[in-house]
Amino acid sequence: MKRVLGRLGHAIFVLWAVASLTFVMFRLMPGDPTLNFLSESFSEEMRAALLTSFGLDRPLPEQYVLYLGSLLRGDLGVSFLQKKPVLDILLDALPNTVALTVTALVIAYAFGIIAGAFLAFARGSVTEGIAIPAALITRAAPEFWLGMILLAWLSFAWGIFPSSGANEAGSEFTSEWARLTSADFLWHLVLPALTLALYLQGLPLLLMRATMLEVLNDEFIVMARMKGLSRWAIVMRHAARNALLPVATAFALGLGSSFGGNVVIETVFSWPGLGRVLVSAVQGADYPLAQGAFILIAAVLVTMNMVADLLYAWLDPRVSVGARR
């Protein structure tokens, strides 16, 4: 319990630091947020009014205090361009990103764990000789490149999967949950999730294989084998359980990091998630929105880092909190 509290305090410290860093980053931005409004009718007074309405004419320390205060209240400000509360915009996009990330990770880890375990057995075989480089290649390929090629084949050329978006145009649902579980949504999810999974599966695969090999060489396994237990039983009873530790930790860390890394996949598949919000906000110099999206992504990352730590400590009490990656 004490450990959990300590780790929580640590996460809060990191969040504060990230939030402050974000503040500094965005205030140092060259250019002027009012540039979005340039038109024949845009005047100096309007520019000043705009700056005032967003509190950008106040001294920086004052802005900082106000900023931290609103963050604590969960108020991420109002988007420059959309004029809507940033939090609402982010919450709209969040379910799509969560669905994409979780689905892709589950597929990647399910496949990676099974394939990794299998490859540990198939040591020195031809299969291994092909599978390991293949796993490395999928990790070395740019995601958007793979995604575009898959899109070209499976969507544009053969017409199997939809080309963009998360739902068919104008589809109506009774609730957000109904939307996320609809066949239509899942069908749209296939290609982006597969592309992301393809990229993510290399890590659990290699990790699983390495741990399995390590465990299989351990004395107690050799002993068990001598006792005449079947290979499969040994694996299930001992090896897999030991391999769970690093894989589970990697899963939690992966959830945190691919949350923000989805930016590219979301752009390729026009997926309406957080990454897209961030990119278009940055491109449009919509400070409050970009800042909010960045902080939300960072918060998820910090939280998942914490979860990974606790998970590690929980699964393996020998290890103290703090050592990871």
Binding site: M148, A152, F156, G159, P162, S164, A169
Partner: peptide, 23 residues
């Protein structure tokens, strides 16, 4: 009956969507 505007950033995907009848 309805007028629906789809946001598609990817030019390739835009053409794909027209061909597939998504737009």
């Amino acid at each position: 009956d309805r007028w629906i505007m789809r946001i598609i950033l990817n030019t390739e995907a835009t053409l794909g969507a027209l061909r597939r009848g998504e737009i």
